[in-house]
């Protein structure tokens, strides 16, 4: 992984993301209960956790799409809680997000989808936009698909086009929401390669939310496990996998029962069926 600190020795660059005492309540459910997390610039951090523990919510806090109850979230040096409208949009131009299903604009071609953020956010002349779009598409291997509509793409291709679009403005921070879901092994390999390349060649800081530990191990240098409103494990992969906590072990080894129970809370089965030997 690239190390920006090496470029300017002496001064440690501020983290790309800094979260302090973040608390979030959605309806009656407490999602985060005062978590702290720091993501250094140029790193790739994997975020895992059982469903419903707020992985996507965390990403939405970082983009300012969802307000949090208390705490402080700093992204690329900006305090998200203080930003509205124009300053927030300015910050978002410095970040890219890969959505779970790509979220391509269905009424635009592949080319126009990748050109969209460039046309909307810059005053670049059209010939230059064309060059940039073709280069981005080339980097995901889909220059030949520039004229296709999103409906004509396979799931893996759509994800790659979405990635090309997300990096169109050369973001400093990339957020990946379940980038491997529903892809065949070849497409997964392509996405893994792209995440690694982006980080190594451009030093893009990345946060990857996913469940596939074997893929995450290849792209990320650090694993953060969320559960029960907090961070239950954080560190290099080997260290986290050796973590003795039963919750971490249950999750990483994929055991159906453990601290996260297999059964949704309910009265004892014998009571419910009326066949109990109750006195």
């Amino acid at each position: 992984m690239t190390d920006p600190a090496a470029a300017n020795p002496g001064s440690r660059p501020p983290p790309a993301v800094a979260i302090r005492k973040l608390t979030t309540q959605l309806g009656s459910k407490r999602i985060f209960d005062g978590i702290d997390l720091e993501v250094p610039r140029g790193s790739v951090t994997a975020i895992m956790g059982p469903s419903g523990t707020g992985k996507t919510t965390l990403l939405r806090h970082l983009t300012g799409q969802l307000a949090f109850d208390s705490g402080r979230v700093t992204v690329l040096g900006e305090d998200i809680g203080q930003l509205h409208h124009e300053p927030l949009y300015r910050l978002r131009r410095r970040m890219g997000m890969l959505f779970q299903h790509g979220a391509l604009l269905t009424d635009l071609t592949v080319f126009d989808n990748v050109a969209f953020p460039l046309r909307e956010n810059t005053d670049l002349p059209e010939p230059l936009i064309r060059t940039l779009v073709l280069l981005k598409l080339q980097s995901v291997g889909l220059r030949g698909a520039a004229g296709l509509m999103p409906a004509e793409l396979s799931g893996g291709m759509a994800r790659r086009v979405a990635l090309a679009r997300a990096i169109a403005l050369d973001p400093e921070l990339m957020l990946y929401d379940e980038p491997f879901v529903g892809l065949d092994p070849i497409a997964v390999a392509a996405v893994v390669e792209l995440i690694i390349t982006l980080n190594r060649t451009l030093g893009v800081t990345s946060l990857v939310v996913a469940h596939e530990i074997e893929h995450l191990r290849r792209v990320a240098d650090r694993l953060v496990v969320l559960a029960d409103g907090g961070i239950i494990a954080d560190g290099p992969f080997d260290q986290v996998q050796a973590d003795p906590s039963p919750m971490v072990q249950q999750f990483l080894r994929g055991l159906s029962d453990g601290p996260v129970p297999f059964h949704y809370p309910a009265a004892p089965l014998t009571d419910e069926l009326g066949i109990g030997g109750a006195t």
Binding site: G96, M97, H101, L104, L105, T106, F116, E120, R165, L169
Partner: peptide
Amino acid sequence: TQQIEAMEMMAVD
């Protein structure tokens, strides 16, 4: 299909 969200993320209202 998250297209609205994607626009917001691309700093497009």
